[in-house]
Write a protein that binds this DNA or RNA. Sequence first.
RNA 1: GGUACCAUAGCUCAGUAGGUAGAGCAACGGACUGAAAAUCCGUGUGUCCCUGGUUCGAUUCCGGGUGGUACCA
Length: 317
Amino acid sequence: MKRKPGVSMTSARTNTENGNTLVIVTGPTGIGKTELCLEIARKLGAEIVSADARQFYRELKIGTAVPTPAQLNEVKHHFIGHLSIHDYYNVSIFEQQVIELINSLFAKNPYVLLCGGSGLYIDAVCKGLDDLPTVCPETRAWVEKVYRTQGLEKLRLWLKKVDPIYYTQVDLANPNRIIRAIEVFQSTGIPMSQLRTSLPKERPFMIKTIILERPRMELFERINNRVDQMVADGLIEEAVSLFRWKNLNALNTVGYQELFDWLSGKYSLPNALEKIKTNTRRYAKRQITWFKKYHDALRVNPDRIDAIMEYIRGCSP
RNA sequence: GGUACCAUAGCUCAGUAGGUAGAGCAACGGACUGAAAAUCCGUGUGUCCCUGGUUCGAUUCCGGGUGGUACCA
């Protein structure tokens, strides 16, 4: 649960002998990652790997602010639109695929860009995940059904019985965490608390992390404007076309759920659009909180391209 | 111009039979290991419009301003 003090989150154990560098560009949604990454990629001749867990899905374009076709054409991007919303996917698969990919990309260029705002996915690339099982859908459905029919307290008691240690560590108000721990035990017979080591994996490359920042008010204004732009670009039509799949996990996403609620008659369209803005702002806030633990990163305004390039090219991280 | 009503948190409003105040939303802070744009936890941030008066004490009662709304001219 608690991370060991002093262990870096983003470049814990790296082998820097070969000089290969993974440049991570992250920050809250709407800060300007896409534009900046494109410019960095041009300067370095590097390719871009997305760390944005919603841009994976090819059906989600407008609402997830994927790069334009022109941008995608100019610089090679990976992990954008490589999945359908009907596919199963998770962070662990991402970790394996990205590590494999970037190691092959280093054969062409000493720099690879990892660009996106999904903190858990970035952590998976930087320090890896423990060897936890991916459980079969039946097991999850079973545990979920117990939660729905018998409530959270029932799950807590279940967890207390199968993993009393994790019971004292986990957020007991968060159903997702408890469900996960139970399903891990049910499918392996090993308690979650034994499988979690939290030991960072060694990566055969250097990591430099850039966290983009702007004044809060400026960021929120950009977010509000971007939502308006998405609507002008056809977000509503996109949501309407996906309405029948509204229960898929990939569509449990800001920008879609609010419009689905409107389509279900829950509230008016102007209300739905206002809620998209609010929920996007909250998402940005959660991201900002997450990135606060990246202690060894460069925190910079995306306009300061010169400082950013100097940081990337500089000898000392 | 006259009459009535209103003025309290960023917004919409409640309240204090006189003892410096609280809801919703917004906002802010935090957690996070295969659902992560997900999921979950925590926090009131206030010249109670201004100014005199009464009072031990006024956001509350009274007078006068100012601003707003409605109706009458």
